[in-house]
Design a protein around this nucleic acid. Structure first.
Lengths: 355, 355
DNA sequence: TTGAAAGCGCTAACAC
DNA sequence: GTGTTAGCGCTTTCAA
């Protein structure tokens, strides 16, 4: 009794549902009904409870709620790195949408490292997170070891993939219409007269493969042979891979008239290489990239803009659907992109009028 | 009994400490000792427990641990927006450091909105987070209402400020040596011959005020009068404030020879305005900014570079110190910066040789 | 070195 | 409409 009173007087202490019940003169079940907004409570009781809550500045303990109700009001976002512009904008959108529903977001960077992804997924499980949004490290061709499969296939925690798919794991996937958008971007370059279009991207990811598919079909449709030496693969981890690969393409393919960059992370360093060689777009070379950025506007770079905000929003909404109905059938959502035409693409050099 | 067995067979179920205890043939207290690594356990028991843990792929339930032990292995980062480059890099560093200690990071964007900050701090409290890193919205001059003071002064949850201070709340603060660095950056501009230096920044934040202080003292030291109309204030929320304010300065102060930008968020849009006017650095105007970025390298902009990684690391380490010893005396850490000189600052135009 | 038992703060049955 | 009670899965006394 003494301790209870001393707690009441201590502004730094947090009160429990018992304190509220005692002050309101009702049982803690009734308090629970009021704050949880379920069951039925008389107006009189409700009022007393709300007054007590206000007086004590009572906030229910989410941890205890979670243990009992199996809902922690938390979603986890697992992705390569929040430093990546796409991921960054995605997390921002997710957090914003989650907040609307009073959910919090746990951020897990995998640094594009398999072990870290596994570790995060384990942690998430032990934290009883309500849902997971995953941009997996798993690249096309890599197989998840059996002993970790349960982390990806657990029916307990709803999980959806964003951007990248994992072949062999059936989950909801939300991504841009990569193939179609890439097809159209390539077609745009072709329409300007380009036939030798270099491509830089991290080939192993499903996303990039889809974009490559669109690139190839546009070329084929135009009767242009696909030269695989024009497609260069950037290892994710390499710092300034874009610079090295742009240099490689420029050195080995003097006939190349356009560069098509499939990851935004790479574009900045491609520009560094162009700067080094004092090459300007579109006069010396045409440049088209994915994902918008302030840089793109400053350099007038034509860009395939992804609606990351929309993707994040849909991811959260879909996750909530799955929380309510885990049996909801799996499907893939493709979000449209926009080709923002600026000034970095022109007609091929040395071919005034198509000579 | 039947249910217990069926759980054992279901790969998707998560096991509890009871399952492990049963399988290992010991009490759950002993299991707790092994996985928590405290007390003393015989080698024999330890081995049995570890085998059972491995066999069941048991992971302790963090929620239950948290409820009982009052440690949730979570720290919360509350800041304006993860989209901001500085915050972004900070969160990245924090998460990396936290992971080393098996702590997870809850991300809370305030969108520079007071109500959202309050709400997040309340949520954090109810979540029994172990520590908080805060870049507060509270600007100089604004007073925290009494009813919310406890959120900032609670002795229950260790909290430290990063970057921005809240006057009147005594907490650890980790920030760059803003005043000194700004003094030196300004001195550098003065040494090139500039006397009319325009400043763009979000004045209300303590960080920016410190930088302004350094700016002023450098001018005073050089005997240059401080013209407050050269200092323009960017509201945080305004989109492309940098562009509007750069335009204002350029229009109203034709004698201005250099611009000094105190927030990185503003620099991109300042460049847009320069581009619009077809002005080049350093020929038409000199430009110096805070916080490095790919853009700065591409545009050869001289920059005060903050060691965000170091700030994040220190923040986490200090937070852990405070968790262990909440009585540890409060202090401020200033992290050094580096003035990276590129090509955006030159001698004032129209003054060849100082005419 | 170990186990039994209490209880963290809450929700959900089940009575009344 | 309301209260009592039994746990959620774990840690932590306290005995043995």
């Amino acid at each position: 009794m003494f301790e209870r009173e001393s707690r009441m007087e201590n502004g730094n202490q947090t009160y429990t549902i018992d304190d509220v019940a005692k002050l309101a003169g009702v049982s803690k079940a009734t308090v629970g009904r009021v704050i949880g907004n379920y069951g039925s409570v008389s107006e009189k009781s409700r009022k007393k409870v709300l007054e007590a809550v206000a007086q004590l500045d009572y906030v229910p303990n989410t941890i205890a709620q979670g243990l009992r109700s199996h809902s922690t009001k938390t979603i986890a976002v697992v992705l390569g790195s929040i430093k990546n512009d796409y991921c960054n904008a995605l997390v921002y959108a997710i957090e914003k949408e989650a907040m609307k529903r009073d959910y919090n977001v746990l951020i897990c960077n995998t640094h594009e490292n398999l072990d870290k992804e596994i570790k995060h997924l384990q942690t998430i499980r032990s934290r009883q997170v309500d849902g997971v949004i995953l941009i997996s490290v798993y690249t096309v061709g890599k197989v998840i070891p059996d002993r970790y499969r349960h982390l990806y296939e657990s029916q307990n925690i709803p999980m959806i993939f964003v951007d990248r798919n994992i072949i062999g794991i059936k989950k909801d996937l939300i991504q841009s219409n990569n193939e179609q958008a890439s097809y159209e971007a390539t077609k745009y370059l072709i329409s300007l007269g380009h036939r030798r279009i270099g491509v830089i991207g991290t080939v192993a990811y499903s996303t990039v493969q889809e974009r490559l598919k669109g690139y190839r079909s546009a070329l084929q449709e135009a009767g242009i042979p696909v030269d695989s030496s024009l497609i260069v693969d950037a290892e994710y981890s390499e710092n300034r891979a874009g610079q090295r690969l742009a240099a490689k393409l420029l050195d080995e393919h003097p006939d190349m008239t356009a560069m098509y960059v499939l990851n935004n992370t790479l574009c900045g360093s491609v520009l560094l290489e162009l700067k080094k060689r004092d090459m300007k777009t579109p006069d010396d070379i045409s440049l088209l990239t994915w994902d918008d950025d302030e840089i793109n506007e400053l350099f007038d770079i034509t860009t395939v803009v992804q609606r990351v905000d929309e993707i994040g929003k849909r991811a959260v909404n879909r996750l909530f659907e799955l929380m309510e109905n885990p049996q909801s059938p799996i499907y893939t959502q493709q979000v449209s992109t926009q080709l923002v035409i600026r000034k970095s693409c022109g007609t091929p050099r040395n071919e005034p009028g198509g000579g």
